[in-house]
Amino acid sequence: MIGYVLRRLAFGLMTLWFISLAVFILFYVATPGDPALMFAGEYATYEQIDLIRTRLGLDQPLHVQYFTYIGNLLRFDFGTSFVNQEDVLATILRRLPVTASLAFGTVAIWVAIAIPTGVFSARRAGRLPDRLVTATALAGMSFPTFVVGTLLFYVLFFVLTNAGFPVFPSGGYVAFTRDPLEWLRHMLLPWMTLAVVGAGTYTRIARGSLLETLNQDYVRTARAKGLRENKVIYHHALPPSMTPVITMMGLDLGGLLGGTIITERIWGLNGVGSLAVQAVETGDLPTIMGTVIFAAFFVVAANLIVDVIQVLRNPQITL
């Protein structure tokens, strides 16, 4: 078990190193234009630009630049923003609660919808209720996020507010620590935006996996013992069928923590996703690099955690 975790950890670190290398090549070697020019802005003098070049180390040979870069990464130093000279890591961490609220809430909603619906559907496989659920899930899956977001914005914010029921705000974020209720009120619509799209996918996965498990011999044995159907489903069939759901959850959580661009934009959430977009728009290289590496970190970490959870769930793997 320890050995397995260490192996997975080593693999994760390797992945991160590859990504950091790709980022380096992309931004130090293959970038069109001079980073120092971007940093200096339009009205800088040549002397200023040269000074900046020296300060950023851009006049050094490439391998020296690389070692400085990797050394900084290892000290969690992502540099300072070209735009406002703020520490990149501090900026990302300040925005992380917004993105984390969105990510964890969304995944929780997905699973909260998908598991009961998947169970409901699988128990009625092939019959009308199952077909309706499957069709609805497919419809949900095929809506693009921006369409769902715009629809929700129009109906649940605009129409409701104009009708005199300002239930939901138009956007923005209130920290949980400041006002949990307001936090919830501000997060509900963004969550719903992402929930519509993902819940369908998760429902289909949960349904399909449970159906497969229900055909297993050991489920027949559970019935042959005279167990009640609920116990057969929830105690014998459902837990083993959760494997693909947990895997997906890990991947999606990792991805969402890296920032959700469209949803953050629609609902005016200043999370990591909108930070990345702003950085791209302003050519803020250190921030772009920081958000990319940060997103990669979450994907790798989530994968690692999921792998360990899957191992813990299976008593057959003990080491």
């Binding site: 011999d217 027949r220 044995t221 042959a224 837990p239 083993p240 769930r313 299976n314 008593p315």
Partner: peptide
């Protein structure tokens, strides 16, 4: 059942 390995719950 025929195959006790698959007929028992693995977990």
């Amino acid at each position: 059942f025929q195959d006790p390995l698959t007929a028992m719950h693995p977990h």
